[in-house]
């Protein structure tokens, strides 16, 4: 799914990063526990979370996650944005809840980092 479509579905704003509407994201993952994302997140996916601190960006960076979307209208602070810029992590924000965001993306065809293919 193209980023431009994800942005539209989530009614999201782009805060930073090398946003390119043509970038393809195939997989969605969501958690407020970063260890869960480290364990199950897939490279190139979008991470949806209501947690807003710099560790979300560090997590995305080490796990090769391309896009982070902060939900519930949470606005990340300057440190988070700067770190995201530095590491080329694209940051979205949406007013939607985690549930609504995941639901809409799944319904529109975004795949999940499902439990069955977790092996390294």
């Amino acid at each position: 799914m193209k980023l431009t479509k994800i942005k539209e579905i989530l009614e999201a704003d782009v805060l930073t990063g090398k946003y390119d509407p043509e970038i393809e994201v195939q997989i969605g993952c969501s958690s407020d526990l970063m260890s869960e994302i480290l364990a199950f997140g897939k490279p190139g996916s979008i991470l949806l979370t209501s947690l807003t601190n710099i560790q979300v960006i560090n997590t995305a960076n080490v796990a090769d996650i391309k896009v982070v979307c902060f939900v519930m209208g949470k606005i990340p602070d300057e440190n988070i944005i700067n770190l995201a810029k530095k590491n080329d992590v694209i940051v979205f924000i949406t007013k939607l809840t985690t549930f609504e965001s995941c639901g809409r993306l799944y319904k529109n065809g975004l795949k999940s980092c499902s439990y069955s293919n977790l092996d390294k």
Partner: peptide, 12 residues
């Protein structure tokens, strides 16, 4: 509250 401490670090 910072998104860690769920006992997954070492298993990860």
């Amino acid at each position: 509250e910072l998104g860690f401490g769920a006992g997954m670090g070492l298993p990860n």
